[in-house]
Design a protein around this nucleic acid. Structure first.
Lengths: 143, 143
DNA sequence: CTACTCTAAGACAAAATGACTGACAGGTCA
DNA sequence: TGACCTGTCAGTCATTTTGTCTTAGAGTAG
């Protein structure tokens, strides 16, 4: 009774990584990267992974498309979300489970925990400056 | 082949929550909270959950201890990690999987995504100030 | 002894996950 | 035409997790 399926599985993530790195490809090419010298079985595995990813909305496919190197129609798969979106998804899930939906505890944890270098601290400050400028019309009071 | 077991399961988390809220207790009391009017079966379920949590290092138990209300020895369970530690654990796992171990992408995502109020932005700034003061001896190069 | 509570040790089913098989369709090229 | 690729789809399969529950055993009070 593994109740809540994990957002994206380890193996599924491996597929996504390839798509993120190499752009859209066919199952065969993905198989070649993930299981070099891939046999038919591996091909099918990648196929399954892609279908599950599609069901989760992480992958799309361009329907029919003629390959240059071969003679057959093949579908082109491409990532429907990027790494950052996946990160957001996970963070939100996590906040949901552990913090009643609020992301703030996660943020403050990171702020407290991370050992920032002076440079990083400065970058953070600049980032906040950006946010201030971007939205901080009314409330502006931070010196 | 669900390969990597989840850090803490949903049901396990429910147990932890009770421990976080109410402090150390016995299995029976936990059962009463989680499954009001709990039958023997529920008792055993909580028991399993606790054992699994113990194996994961999230729970400890004070061995034998005499209860006031009853006549038998019972063990007292108590949380071995708090919510914030669990958050940290998850964040680190997540960074491991998605960001090659770096927490920075998570942080910047949160910074970009969250809609901060002016007040929150100021608090963040103050937090960074603290960090500056606290560690800002050597590396000092800001500006 | 009997009744009660607790604990330990596992059995169990449903579901998730990774991996795989086989049937079938359409195109190529001898 | 027909053997042969290459690709798709649908479904099977074993292992593991996860939530749940049964049972046997042990200790204590009345």
């Amino acid at each position: 009774m593994a109740r809540t399926p994990r957002d994206v599985t380890e193996r599924e993530l491996a597929v996504l990584e390839v798509l993120w790195n190499g752009g859209a490809t066919t199952i065969r090419q993905l198989t070649e990267v993930l299981y070099p010298g891939g046999r038919t079985a591996h091909y099918a595995t990648v196929q399954t992974l892609l279908h599950r990813l599609e069901a989760k909305g992480c992958v799309r496919r361009e329907r029919v498309c003629y390959l240059p190197s071969h003679h057959n129609k093949a579908q082109i798969y491409l990532a429907a979300i990027d790494r950052d979106e996946l990160i957001g998804r996970r963070l939100r899930d996590m906040a949901e489970q552990l913090c009643g939906g609020s992301l703030t505890p996660l943020l403050t944890h990171l702020m407290r925990t991370r050992q920032f270098t002076a440079v990083e601290r400065r970058e953070l400050r600049l980032l906040i400056d950006d946010l201030d400028r971007e939205k901080g019309k009314g409330k502006g009071d931070a010196r």
